[in-house]
Design a protein around this nucleic acid. Sequence first.
DNA 1: TTGTAGGCGTTATCAA
DNA 2: TTGATAACGCCTACAA
Lengths: 356, 356
Amino acid sequence: MATIEREKAATIADVARRAGVAKSTASRLLSGARQGTPWAREAVERACDELGYRPDPNAQKLARGQSQNTIGLFTHFLDLGVGTKTLRRVQQLLGERGFSVPLHVTISGIEHQDHLALLQNVCAQRYRAIVGAQAWLLREREWEELAQYGRNGGPVVLYDHTPRLPIACDQVLFDMENGFRAAVAHLAALGHTRIGTFFAPMRHPETSPQLRAFERVLGEFGLKLRPHWLFRGQGHIEHDLEGALAAQTFLDLAPSKRPSAMLIVSDSAAMGFATVLSRSGLQIPRDLSLVGHDDKPIAALCSPPLTTISYPVEAIAARVVELLCERLDGTYNGPPRTEIISGNLVERHSTAAQKG
Amino acid sequence: MATIEREKAATIADVARRAGVAKSTASRLLSGARQGTPWAREAVERACDELGYRPDPNAQKLARGQSQNTIGLFTHFLDLGVGTKTLRRVQQLLGERGFSVPLHVTISGIEHQDHLALLQNVCAQRYRAIVGAQAWLLREREWEELAQYGRNGGPVVLYDHTPRLPIACDQVLFDMENGFRAAVAHLAALGHTRIGTFFAPMRHPETSPQLRAFERVLGEFGLKLRPHWLFRGQGHIEHDLEGALAAQTFLDLAPSKRPSAMLIVSDSAAMGFATVLSRSGLQIPRDLSLVGHDDKPIAALCSPPLTTISYPVEAIAARVVELLCERLDGTYNGPPRTEIISGNLVERHSTAAQKG
DNA sequence: TTGTAGGCGTTATCAA
DNA sequence: TTGATAACGCCTACAA
């Protein structure tokens, strides 16, 4: 494959030559380390302009030892919900502290293969630090990679759902179980015993920690999850679509076999679910009680206002950034910390007492 | 601020020393340029393992001239809709072709200040190429930056809405006007004359090309946009929220002053709008005709199924990648190309004939 | 196949 | 303040 010819970019040597000074002088003036004489100052500046000079960050990083002000952020896929919102918030907070925060995303779906390449790439960049989300997808090889980075690269902070990730680094973990408990308690108090659920697609449904947490909680109330009450996403990026598709499956069930309440692990999915149900004449909460997850702002405004478990985007992002910055400025350099954050049930109007 | 001490990462020199070979030998074996004797091969491999050696990409890029397989992708904010979906698709397609595609995002909102820093950062990375979205936000200084990169960096491909961006590079532009025309024609045929609209927040409402396009189209049908029929977003990341808030403003209007149809430039916003309306007992399309934008998958499934203008995520992403790859492999190296892509009206059931 | 030597574009050190 | 000169870590002729 032929490659286009391009002029080579100007280097600091070109600038120095044109300005009639030494390389080192140009470097100093440009980095602002010294004032320099007005004359030299202006000459260098003009040379830069004329040449369109841009320092090569690779050379800079090499010479300076490492990139001081950029932090690598990685995740495995951009969702269209709280995941991306949290990512954005982390970037924002770190940005406010003067860091540049490029985001690395795995290209493929939920499959394994790309994760290693992504992680190697991220670790290899010699960022000042690394922040990662959705790390539960990683496997042994990738953990090694991250651990290696942690050893002689810089701090690593991960945030995810419980359980704790198998790596020695600071972690902010969202524990869904507390929320589940509040939701199930609420539904059980309303007389519901047939509680179904919708979960995002998972690699190993049998071992999904979230699903098991849900079943555990159900057990605490003497309830059990029937297989046909478990609805699973198909991997579309749009949660509302996922919810809508689940609703179609729901409607395929004979009315007597349907759950009387559903815990849908995403407000968007819950709303998609509800809108499809309404086309069939079913009403929330009359015909089905619905509990969402995330407490998106719209949940309070939609019809009916959605009872939901909150996902504290702000708290999580803030904590991640705090843990990281404490490491970076040396305020803390003890053993890895694990922060558990959980959501609360926000009661609104999408649940009602069990009929009959 | 104190900084934590870390051991320095192993270099290729360490590896070579430990393996008892020369640096160059280690380099060759690692890069796979030569086979090497089995003995040396194994010695180097073991040394790498023991030392946890990771090549420094900065040094590699410097030595090799530039990063051959990474493409910079930038945008100004991650939305929770088609913007992010398109970004993701571009990353995916480029990833399939073997490129690593870090995403750079401006941290701040719609304000100007950060864009320059972002762009300088992106350009400075010496990526093989740059792909950008939402470039309409850029100003003169940033255009210069990109132009400079294009001169001696590599190809730049931008995608955005019309109008054409003031820079000499390949562009894929989505033209909303055709969709508007189809929508307004549709509504006009149903007898609507009071057509309102919802737009995302803009810097300069008076000069927003999209809004002006809408007004122009309205004019073609002898219609006019009343100021109180124009609803504007408040800048929240959730479109559904934006729509819901707009609906509250809508409901504050005396019924006689309300538009009879709305074109809402986002399906999510349209659905948020609709759900708030329904809480007040208003029904779509009985009391208000609604046309959305984007043709999200859920639009076909919700209640009522949403008439909407499509936004061809796949076509746009594919075209961006094609244009770029043609530049990269030298298939095309002529003058900048501009591709216009537009959406179509997808008629469903959220519109009805004007009452009375 | 291997080792030596030089270069990539910066920054940092040290006399002048 | 300035200008040589030496790193920084890797790659790549070139000669052995």
